[in-house]
Simulated assay, not measured.
Amino acid sequence: MYSLIRPLLFRLDAEQAHNLTLQALHKAQRYKLMPTAPAISLPTRLMGLNLPNPLGLAAGLDKNGECIDALFALGFGFIEIGTVTPKPQEGNPKPRLFRLPEHQAIINRMGFNNHGIDAMIRNIENSRRQGILGINIGKNATTPIENAADDYLICLEKAYAYADYITVNISSPNTQNLRSLQGGDELSALLEALKNKQSHLRAQHGKYVPLAVKIAPDLDEAQIADIAHVVQQVEMDALIATNTTIDKSSLGKHPLSSEAGGLSGMPVREASNRVLQSLSAELHGKIPLIGVGGILQGADAVRKIELGADAVQVYSGLIYRGPDLIGECLRHLQAHKV
Protein backbone atom coordinates (compact mmCIF):
# COMPACT_ATOMS: atom_id res chain seq x y z
CA MET A 1 0.00 0.00 0.00
CA TYR A 2 2.84 2.41 0.82
CA SER A 3 4.08 2.22 -2.78
CA LEU A 4 0.73 3.70 -3.82
CA ILE A 5 0.68 6.39 -1.14
CA ARG A 6 4.32 7.49 -1.39
CA PRO A 7 3.99 9.49 -4.65
CA LEU A 8 1.18 11.48 -3.07
CA LEU A 9 3.20 12.15 0.09
CA PHE A 10 6.26 13.16 -1.93
CA ARG A 11 4.23 15.83 -3.70
CA LEU A 12 3.68 17.52 -0.34
CA ASP A 13 6.14 19.58 1.64
CA ALA A 14 8.29 17.11 3.61
CA GLU A 15 7.20 18.31 7.06
CA GLN A 16 3.55 18.43 6.00
CA ALA A 17 3.86 14.83 4.76
CA HIS A 18 5.50 13.84 8.05
CA ASN A 19 2.66 15.28 10.11
CA LEU A 20 0.03 13.76 7.81
CA THR A 21 1.66 10.34 8.14
CA LEU A 22 1.55 10.53 11.93
CA GLN A 23 -2.13 11.49 11.83
CA ALA A 24 -2.85 8.59 9.46
CA LEU A 25 -0.99 6.14 11.71
CA HIS A 26 -2.94 7.33 14.73
CA LYS A 27 -6.29 6.92 12.95
CA ALA A 28 -5.33 3.55 11.46
CA GLN A 29 -4.52 2.24 14.91
CA ARG A 30 -7.70 3.71 16.38
CA TYR A 31 -9.91 2.10 13.74
CA LYS A 32 -7.95 -1.17 13.62
CA LEU A 33 -6.70 -0.62 10.06
CA MET A 34 -3.01 -1.22 10.74
CA PRO A 35 -1.15 -3.61 8.42
CA THR A 36 -0.30 -7.04 9.82
CA ALA A 37 3.09 -6.96 11.54
CA PRO A 38 5.75 -9.46 10.44
CA ALA A 39 5.38 -12.70 12.44
CA ILE A 40 9.10 -13.04 13.12
CA SER A 41 10.39 -13.64 16.64
CA LEU A 42 14.03 -12.86 17.34
CA PRO A 43 14.32 -12.54 21.15
CA THR A 44 17.17 -10.19 22.02
CA ARG A 45 18.70 -9.11 25.30
CA LEU A 46 19.76 -5.46 25.31
CA MET A 47 20.68 -3.27 28.30
CA GLY A 48 19.09 -5.90 30.53
CA LEU A 49 15.82 -5.61 28.58
CA ASN A 50 14.08 -8.43 26.73
CA LEU A 51 13.22 -7.35 23.18
CA PRO A 52 10.99 -9.42 20.86
CA ASN A 53 13.44 -8.57 18.08
CA PRO A 54 16.52 -6.32 17.64
CA LEU A 55 14.95 -3.89 15.13
CA GLY A 56 14.00 -0.55 16.62
CA LEU A 57 12.61 2.79 15.52
CA ALA A 58 15.06 5.66 15.96
CA ALA A 59 14.08 8.91 17.65
CA GLY A 60 12.73 11.74 15.51
CA LEU A 61 9.69 10.21 13.86
CA ASP A 62 7.40 10.55 16.87
CA LYS A 63 8.81 13.45 18.85
CA ASN A 64 5.89 13.72 21.27
CA GLY A 65 4.87 10.10 21.75
CA GLU A 66 1.60 10.57 19.87
CA CYS A 67 1.68 7.29 17.90
CA ILE A 68 3.21 4.82 20.34
CA ASP A 69 0.61 2.08 19.90
CA ALA A 70 0.54 2.37 16.10
CA LEU A 71 4.32 2.20 15.86
CA PHE A 72 4.51 -0.88 18.05
CA ALA A 73 1.85 -2.48 15.84
CA LEU A 74 4.22 -2.25 12.85
CA GLY A 75 6.45 -4.93 14.35
CA PHE A 76 9.35 -3.05 15.92
CA GLY A 77 11.17 -4.74 18.79
CA PHE A 78 11.51 -1.36 20.48
CA ILE A 79 10.72 2.26 19.66
CA GLU A 80 12.36 5.48 20.73
CA ILE A 81 10.33 8.68 20.98
CA GLY A 82 11.62 12.26 21.21
CA THR A 83 13.88 14.16 21.20
CA VAL A 84 12.01 15.87 24.02
CA THR A 85 13.06 18.93 26.03
CA PRO A 86 11.95 20.27 29.43
CA LYS A 87 9.87 23.07 27.92
CA PRO A 88 7.91 23.13 24.66
CA GLN A 89 9.70 24.78 21.76
CA GLU A 90 8.93 25.54 18.12
CA GLY A 91 12.30 24.50 16.75
CA ASN A 92 14.03 26.20 13.85
CA PRO A 93 12.24 28.31 11.21
CA LYS A 94 10.55 26.52 8.30
CA PRO A 95 11.31 25.08 5.82
CA ARG A 96 13.54 22.75 7.82
CA LEU A 97 12.99 19.27 6.37
CA PHE A 98 14.04 18.24 2.86
CA ARG A 99 13.89 14.98 0.90
CA LEU A 100 16.57 14.05 -1.65
CA PRO A 101 15.12 11.02 -3.47
CA GLU A 102 18.08 10.76 -5.84
CA HIS A 103 20.27 9.98 -2.84
CA GLN A 104 17.61 8.26 -0.69
CA ALA A 105 18.43 10.92 1.87
CA ILE A 106 16.89 13.52 4.15
CA ILE A 107 18.25 16.83 5.42
CA ASN A 108 16.68 18.19 8.59
CA ARG A 109 17.29 21.14 10.83
CA MET A 110 14.20 20.70 12.97
CA GLY A 111 15.86 21.93 16.16
CA PHE A 112 14.15 19.68 18.71
CA ASN A 113 10.64 20.94 17.96
CA ASN A 114 8.40 19.29 20.54
CA HIS A 115 5.57 19.88 23.01
CA GLY A 116 7.75 19.41 26.09
CA ILE A 117 8.29 16.50 28.48
CA ASP A 118 4.99 16.98 30.36
CA ALA A 119 2.93 16.66 27.16
CA MET A 120 4.89 13.56 26.17
CA ILE A 121 4.19 11.95 29.53
CA ARG A 122 0.46 12.56 29.09
CA ASN A 123 0.64 10.82 25.72
CA ILE A 124 2.47 7.85 27.23
CA GLU A 125 -0.14 7.60 29.99
CA ASN A 126 -2.87 7.48 27.33
CA SER A 127 -1.16 4.69 25.38
CA ARG A 128 -1.19 0.94 25.96
CA ARG A 129 2.60 0.91 25.50
CA GLN A 130 2.87 -2.74 24.58
CA GLY A 131 6.60 -2.94 24.05
CA ILE A 132 10.02 -1.61 24.99
CA LEU A 133 9.87 2.19 24.98
CA GLY A 134 12.88 4.49 24.86
CA ILE A 135 12.71 8.23 25.51
CA ASN A 136 15.30 10.46 23.83
CA ILE A 137 16.09 13.61 25.83
CA GLY A 138 17.74 16.90 24.91
CA LYS A 139 18.14 20.51 26.00
CA ASN A 140 16.09 23.59 25.14
CA ALA A 141 17.65 25.92 22.61
CA THR A 142 17.45 28.85 25.03
CA THR A 143 19.37 27.02 27.75
CA PRO A 144 23.06 28.06 27.72
CA ILE A 145 25.35 25.19 26.85
CA GLU A 146 27.10 25.52 30.22
CA ASN A 147 23.75 24.74 31.88
CA ALA A 148 22.83 21.89 29.55
CA ALA A 149 23.07 19.29 32.30
CA ASP A 150 20.16 20.96 34.11
CA ASP A 151 17.83 20.29 31.17
CA TYR A 152 18.95 16.68 30.80
CA LEU A 153 18.46 16.08 34.51
CA ILE A 154 14.93 17.55 34.42
CA CYS A 155 14.00 15.26 31.52
CA LEU A 156 15.64 12.25 33.13
CA GLU A 157 13.73 12.73 36.36
CA LYS A 158 10.36 13.22 34.65
CA ALA A 159 10.81 10.44 32.08
CA TYR A 160 12.25 7.83 34.43
CA ALA A 161 8.98 6.26 35.57
CA TYR A 162 7.66 6.00 31.99
CA ALA A 163 10.68 4.75 30.05
CA ASP A 164 12.25 1.34 29.60
CA TYR A 165 15.46 3.15 28.66
CA ILE A 166 16.50 6.77 28.17
CA THR A 167 18.80 8.15 25.48
CA VAL A 168 20.92 11.25 25.99
CA ASN A 169 21.05 13.14 22.69
CA ILE A 170 24.25 15.19 22.50
CA SER A 171 24.82 14.77 18.80
CA SER A 172 22.12 16.69 16.94
CA PRO A 173 23.76 19.31 14.69
CA ASN A 174 20.67 21.51 14.89
CA THR A 175 21.00 22.90 18.42
CA GLN A 176 23.82 25.41 18.76
CA ASN A 177 26.98 24.02 20.42
CA LEU A 178 25.26 20.77 21.40
CA ARG A 179 27.94 18.58 19.85
CA SER A 180 30.56 20.21 22.07
CA LEU A 181 29.16 18.01 24.84
CA GLN A 182 30.78 15.03 23.10
CA GLY A 183 34.22 16.31 24.17
CA GLY A 184 36.10 14.41 26.89
CA ASP A 185 35.68 16.65 29.96
CA GLU A 186 32.24 17.93 28.99
CA LEU A 187 31.00 14.43 28.21
CA SER A 188 32.38 12.99 31.41
CA ALA A 189 30.82 15.72 33.57
CA LEU A 190 27.40 15.39 31.91
CA LEU A 191 27.25 11.60 32.00
CA GLU A 192 28.49 11.42 35.59
CA ALA A 193 25.72 13.82 36.65
CA LEU A 194 23.14 11.70 34.83
CA LYS A 195 24.44 8.43 36.23
CA ASN A 196 24.33 9.86 39.76
CA LYS A 197 20.73 10.97 39.18
CA GLN A 198 19.92 7.55 37.75
CA SER A 199 21.16 5.94 40.97
CA HIS A 200 18.87 8.13 43.10
CA LEU A 201 15.90 7.51 40.81
CA ARG A 202 16.51 3.77 40.91
CA ALA A 203 16.16 3.84 44.69
CA GLN A 204 13.12 6.12 44.50
CA HIS A 205 11.21 4.10 41.88
CA GLY A 206 12.46 0.64 42.70
CA LYS A 207 13.50 -0.07 39.12
CA TYR A 208 16.60 0.40 36.98
CA VAL A 209 16.13 2.35 33.74
CA PRO A 210 19.21 2.06 31.49
CA LEU A 211 20.90 5.13 30.05
CA ALA A 212 22.20 5.26 26.47
CA VAL A 213 24.06 8.08 24.74
CA LYS A 214 23.72 8.93 21.05
CA ILE A 215 26.78 10.19 19.21
CA ALA A 216 27.59 11.75 15.83
CA PRO A 217 29.16 10.15 12.76
CA ASP A 218 31.48 13.13 12.29
CA LEU A 219 34.12 11.95 14.77
CA ASP A 220 37.76 11.07 14.19
CA GLU A 221 39.43 8.02 15.68
CA ALA A 222 40.83 9.92 18.66
CA GLN A 223 37.40 11.31 19.53
CA ILE A 224 35.85 7.85 19.22
CA ALA A 225 38.51 6.44 21.56
CA ASP A 226 37.86 9.24 24.08
CA ILE A 227 34.11 8.58 24.03
CA ALA A 228 34.67 4.85 24.45
CA HIS A 229 36.88 5.56 27.46
CA VAL A 230 34.36 7.91 29.10
CA VAL A 231 31.32 5.68 28.63
CA GLN A 232 33.19 2.76 30.17
CA GLN A 233 34.44 4.89 33.04
CA VAL A 234 30.97 6.16 33.96
CA GLU A 235 29.34 2.79 33.16
CA MET A 236 26.80 3.90 30.58
CA ASP A 237 24.36 1.18 29.57
CA ALA A 238 24.60 1.57 25.77
CA LEU A 239 25.89 3.69 22.90
CA ILE A 240 23.82 4.60 19.84
CA ALA A 241 25.86 5.16 16.70
CA THR A 242 25.00 7.41 14.98
CA ASN A 243 23.01 10.59 14.52
CA THR A 244 22.97 12.58 11.27
CA THR A 245 26.07 13.92 9.53
CA ILE A 246 26.99 17.51 8.69
CA ASP A 247 29.20 16.30 5.82
CA LYS A 248 27.28 16.80 2.59
CA SER A 249 30.14 16.20 0.17
CA SER A 250 28.44 13.02 -1.05
CA LEU A 251 25.61 15.13 -2.48
CA GLY A 252 27.84 16.74 -5.10
CA LYS A 253 26.11 19.65 -6.81
CA HIS A 254 22.61 18.71 -5.69
CA PRO A 255 20.47 21.88 -5.32
CA LEU A 256 19.91 21.10 -1.63
CA SER A 257 23.54 20.34 -0.79
CA SER A 258 24.05 23.78 0.74
CA GLU A 259 21.07 23.50 3.09
CA ALA A 260 22.05 23.59 6.76
CA GLY A 261 21.14 20.62 8.93
CA GLY A 262 21.88 16.96 9.46
CA LEU A 263 22.00 14.54 6.55
CA SER A 264 20.52 11.06 7.01
CA GLY A 265 19.68 8.07 4.85
CA MET A 266 22.03 6.34 2.45
CA PRO A 267 24.78 9.05 2.47
CA VAL A 268 25.42 8.60 6.21
CA ARG A 269 25.70 4.80 6.04
CA GLU A 270 29.46 4.49 5.56
CA ALA A 271 30.34 7.15 8.14
CA SER A 272 27.94 5.60 10.64
CA ASN A 273 29.36 2.13 10.02
CA ARG A 274 32.91 3.42 10.45
CA VAL A 275 32.08 4.86 13.87
CA LEU A 276 30.23 1.70 14.85
CA GLN A 277 33.12 -0.54 13.85
CA SER A 278 35.64 1.63 15.69
CA LEU A 279 33.53 1.69 18.84
CA SER A 280 33.16 -2.07 18.73
CA ALA A 281 36.94 -2.44 18.52
CA GLU A 282 37.42 -0.03 21.45
CA LEU A 283 34.73 -1.50 23.72
CA HIS A 284 35.28 -5.25 23.20
CA GLY A 285 31.65 -5.99 23.97
CA LYS A 286 31.71 -4.24 27.37
CA ILE A 287 28.91 -1.82 26.44
CA PRO A 288 26.03 -2.66 24.07
CA LEU A 289 25.94 -0.85 20.73
CA ILE A 290 22.86 0.17 18.75
CA GLY A 291 23.57 0.80 15.08
CA VAL A 292 21.56 3.39 13.19
CA GLY A 293 22.17 5.32 10.00
CA GLY A 294 21.63 4.39 6.38
CA ILE A 295 19.52 1.26 6.72
CA LEU A 296 17.60 1.17 3.42
CA GLN A 297 17.42 -2.60 3.01
CA GLY A 298 17.69 -5.78 5.05
CA ALA A 299 21.36 -6.29 4.20
CA ASP A 300 22.17 -2.90 5.76
CA ALA A 301 20.73 -4.04 9.10
CA VAL A 302 22.74 -7.27 8.95
CA ARG A 303 25.92 -5.33 8.17
CA LYS A 304 25.58 -3.29 11.34
CA ILE A 305 25.26 -6.49 13.38
CA GLU A 306 28.38 -7.83 11.66
CA LEU A 307 30.24 -4.64 12.63
CA GLY A 308 29.39 -5.08 16.31
CA ALA A 309 25.88 -3.75 16.88
CA ASP A 310 23.68 -5.62 19.34
CA ALA A 311 20.54 -4.04 17.87
CA VAL A 312 19.68 -1.61 15.07
CA GLN A 313 17.31 1.29 14.48
CA VAL A 314 15.71 2.70 11.33
CA TYR A 315 14.07 6.00 10.43
CA SER A 316 14.95 7.59 7.08
CA GLY A 317 14.64 4.22 5.36
CA LEU A 318 10.97 4.14 6.37
CA ILE A 319 10.36 7.34 4.44
CA TYR A 320 11.59 5.71 1.23
CA ARG A 321 10.55 2.09 1.80
CA GLY A 322 7.60 2.25 4.17
CA PRO A 323 6.63 -0.59 6.54
CA ASP A 324 7.94 -3.21 4.07
CA LEU A 325 11.42 -2.31 5.30
CA ILE A 326 10.56 -3.66 8.75
CA GLY A 327 9.68 -7.13 7.50
CA GLU A 328 12.66 -7.19 5.13
CA CYS A 329 15.10 -6.30 7.91
CA LEU A 330 13.63 -8.90 10.24
CA ARG A 331 13.82 -11.62 7.58
CA HIS A 332 17.46 -10.80 6.86
CA LEU A 333 18.31 -10.72 10.57
CA GLN A 334 16.57 -14.05 11.04
CA ALA A 335 18.51 -15.57 8.14
CA HIS A 336 21.68 -14.14 9.67
CA LYS A 337 20.72 -15.94 12.89
CA VAL A 338 21.05 -12.89 15.11
Rank of each mutant, 00 (worst) to 15 (best):
M1R: 02
L4M: 13
I5S: 09
R6T: 08
R11K: 15
D13Q: 15
E15T: 04
H18F: 01
H18Q: 02
K27Y: 15
A37F: 10
P38G: 03
A39H: 14
A39Q: 13
S41R: 12
L46I: 01
L46D: 02
N53K: 04
A58V: 07
G60L: 02
G60N: 05
D62V: 01
N64I: 10
G65A: 03
I68A: 06
A70Y: 00
L71I: 05
L74A: 00
G75I: 05
G77T: 01
G77R: 05
I81L: 11
G82H: 08
V84I: 15
K87Y: 11
Q89W: 12
Q89K: 14
N92W: 00
P93A: 06
R99P: 04
L100R: 02
R109N: 12
H115K: 15
R122S: 15
R128N: 08
T142Q: 08
T143S: 00
P144A: 13
A148F: 08
L153F: 06
K158M: 10
Y160K: 01
A163E: 10
D164Q: 07
N169K: 10
T175D: 02
L178C: 06
R179C: 11
L181S: 03
D185A: 15
L187E: 08
L191S: 08
L194V: 02
Q198L: 02
Q198C: 08
S199E: 08
A203C: 04
A203N: 15
V209L: 12
V213Y: 06
A216W: 00
P217C: 01
P217Y: 08
H229Q: 15
Q233D: 02
L239A: 07
T242R: 09
D247I: 07
K248N: 10
K253W: 06
S257M: 03
E259S: 09
G265L: 11
N273M: 04
Q277P: 00
S280L: 10
L283F: 12
V292F: 14
G293R: 04
I295A: 03
Q297W: 01
R303K: 14
K304P: 06
I305G: 06
I305H: 07
L307G: 00
L307Y: 07
V312G: 10
Y315H: 11
S316H: 04
L318R: 11
L318T: 03
I326H: 04
I326Y: 11
